[in-house]
Design a protein around this nucleic acid. Sequence first.
DNA 1: CCAAAAGTGTTGATGATACACCCATGT
DNA 2: ACATGGGTGTATCATCAACACTTTTGG
Lengths: 223, 223
Amino acid sequence: MGHPAVAVTVDLVVLTVREDALCVLLVRRGVEPHRGREALPGGFLRPDEDLAAAAARELAEETGLTVGHLEQLASYGAPDRDPRQRVVTVAHLALVPDQPLPTAGTDAADARWVPVADACGLAFDHDRVLADGVERARAKLEYTALATAFCPPAFTVAQLRRVYEVVWGRALDPRNFHRKVTGTPGLLEPTGETTTRDGGRPAQLFRRGPADTLHPPFLRTDA
Amino acid sequence: MGHPAVAVTVDLVVLTVREDALCVLLVRRGVEPHRGREALPGGFLRPDEDLAAAAARELAEETGLTVGHLEQLASYGAPDRDPRQRVVTVAHLALVPDQPLPTAGTDAADARWVPVADACGLAFDHDRVLADGVERARAKLEYTALATAFCPPAFTVAQLRRVYEVVWGRALDPRNFHRKVTGTPGLLEPTGETTTRDGGRPAQLFRRGPADTLHPPFLRTDA
DNA sequence: CCAAAAGTGTTGATGATACACCCATGT
DNA sequence: ACATGGGTGTATCATCAACACTTTTGG
């Protein structure tokens, strides 16, 4: 075709909720450019794979994590974003439950969770990519069932509420929240189990239901 | 680097509202592959330009239209989407006011407006790209001031309502709609002018205000 | 005067917030 | 018994759909 060759990469904004903070998975770069700085995990697109497949492969290779949700975020292609050659990256957003990082058998040896508030000065244009990913996650909690992607397979209403509180950075009324989520058809399915608690009434356990969009939405007033 | 070269293109979903239909700009392909079939306008990314700049350039070259709004839509990179070589396309969504297609001085000689309901059997994976663009436009009307991008610089409340009705495919109550849009701060600014009408009370003319998000949103109930 | 389209008032339904209250468990 | 957190009832308030009604023009 005679058109300028471009390298295409897939980068990942992997978010989780742990210890009352929204955290992102970062890796420390071992090669130039930006050697030694932290960056979003990612890698080159292979000849025979789709964009979504590449994102899923990178996520498995670099983290070994169980994935709650994976979607395309946006593409970034400023001419000077990589000093070596022209690189266009297709960023993806992954939401995962809180889980320890497997340290063996993956490239995740030097990966770590960082609260998004502390993640800045990243390599390339990753500050921007991260900001876009966080904003996407915040917005999508309003009108989709995505918050369940941050939760383990079985979870309580209170756990789900903490997800909202941490991602949005504001407190929610536990009573009203309970009514809202249990009153939204298809959002939650009771497992019949309850938690064993340390000093309180046991909570019902739920798994996520078939609903993916929320009608009516949860509006974070103002913001 | 030694990584497989990929060609990157920028494709455009250009939408407008005309004659009570949501229409998309299509061009007939003059070269293989898919010669003779209709496709979304687009072209290759140049070495020195950003993705957004490439989209704006293509739009100007191929249409010469005044642009109401331009944003990135999504990227598509199935390995077999182009039989010649590996091509990843970054699709963009453009919303423009209804205006005649300039036929001179552009590549738009064979471009035409097609109602989205009639646009199928497009080249490559453009059916999919178009569907994603239309869905994005429909969703964004709910919570942004984007509908004004379909309108000329000065417009009436009724014109704006037609935009919503055509894009969503359902009738809205003129009285309630009027109250909603005039009651949303920053959405509309009165010009002081009125229309000269053919058999009815003249309508106030507005231009779009500084607001870009709508609080509270216009929900299309059910859908 | 009549038709047509702009714009306003009012009402009842629906959903959100705030908060009092009860329930079930561990210590 | 009591502390702790799960879960429910209810009043108050905002928002919305529906529709009757008034206003301003052209014929």
